Amino acid sequence: MRKLSPGRTVVSYIWALSPIYTLGMGTSITMIIAAVRVRSVLLWLMQPVYLALVILGFATAGSEDGTTGDTVFLAVFLTLVTIGTGHAFFLRRRVFSPAEADLLKQAELDVHRRRELRAQAAEVARRSPALAVEMRIGRPDLERSYDDGGLIDVNHAPASVLAEIPGMTPELAARVVQVRSDTGGFISAEEAATLADLPPMLTPQIAEYGVFLR
């Protein structure tokens, strides 16, 4: 199960503690929220029980001390607070974990962001190769503070880094390193693919992730 963000964690604890600070009377609403979020038939089947206890609690709330009604109220209060809180904490992570649609949307946003970063860094490399070298664009193997979106300097990165290009195997990466050593480097993805005799499917991937700094 995915780790909750700090914000979701805080909200989840506030929700899970609601049976306590509502004195048990909000437990039914707490469990309805859980049933809606988790989409559990079992949780929905339990709703009448929680609702009945809440109604019974309200009905006996004004009973005189020592009477049967007072005893019933105390038992209902303790049940809603203890059982409700324990149940809420048991469900907390499931209730507040991002929905699959949210996860998919976040994954799409992350991909787009990485593409934008690669495009920006590639433009820096095109405009000022010396600056790109100083910024260590395409060199995740070196210490740096600039996020280039996953670009790889095909002319200088070690084979282990080249192998991170989608579709690039360690064997193909080693071949690229050998050919660039023999030829002095490449000027484009097409040249690298041709000289290193790489599979055609790799050319678009090298073009997407590669820079060719001299």
Rank of each mutant, 00 (worst) to 15 (best):
V54D: 04
I20K: 09
S40K: 10
G26C: 01
M31R: 08
V81P: 02
T79Y: 05
I32T: 11
L42K: 15
S40H: 12
A61C: 09
E64Y: 00
L56N: 10
D65T: 14
T82V: 15
F73Y: 13
S40M: 10
A52H: 08
S63Y: 04
T68I: 12
F77C: 07
S63N: 08
P48V: 12
L78W: 13
W44M: 11
A35D: 06
S63K: 05
L45E: 10
G26A: 03
V38W: 02
F77D: 08
L51C: 07
V41E: 09
I83D: 07
G26V: 00
V54C: 05
L23N: 11
T71V: 09
A35R: 08
S63D: 08
P48M: 10
L45K: 15
G62A: 02
Y50A: 10
V81H: 06
L80N: 05
I32N: 06
T82D: 06
T82G: 08
L42Q: 14
Y50S: 11
W44H: 09
A59N: 13
T67K: 11
T60A: 00
G66W: 05
V38M: 06
L43Q: 03
L23A: 13
I32K: 09
G24Q: 01
R39Q: 15
T82P: 02
R39T: 10
A75W: 11
M46Y: 07
A61T: 14
V81A: 02
T30P: 05
I20P: 05
V38N: 05
G24M: 05
L23P: 04
R39E: 12
T22S: 13
I55C: 08
G57Y: 01
G24I: 03
L56C: 11
F73W: 10
Q47S: 05
T30L: 01
G62P: 04
L45I: 15
L78C: 12
T79F: 00
V54H: 00
G66S: 03
V81F: 02
A34D: 05
S18F: 00
R39K: 15
F58N: 09
L51N: 06
D65I: 13
I33V: 15
V49E: 00
M46W: 11
F77W: 13
S18A: 14
S63H: 04
L17A: 13
S28N: 07
I20F: 08
L53M: 14
G57K: 01
A75L: 14
T79E: 04
A61R: 07
V72F: 00
V81R: 07
I55L: 11
Q47T: 14
S18V: 06
V41P: 03
T30Q: 12
F73P: 02
A34W: 08
G26T: 04
V38D: 00
T22I: 09
M31Y: 00
I29W: 02
F58V: 13
T71Q: 10
G24D: 07
V38Q: 10
T30V: 14
G69I: 08
W44Q: 08
A75M: 14
E64N: 07
S40T: 15
Q47R: 01
L23K: 08
A52P: 09
A35S: 14
V38I: 14
L42I: 15
D70I: 01
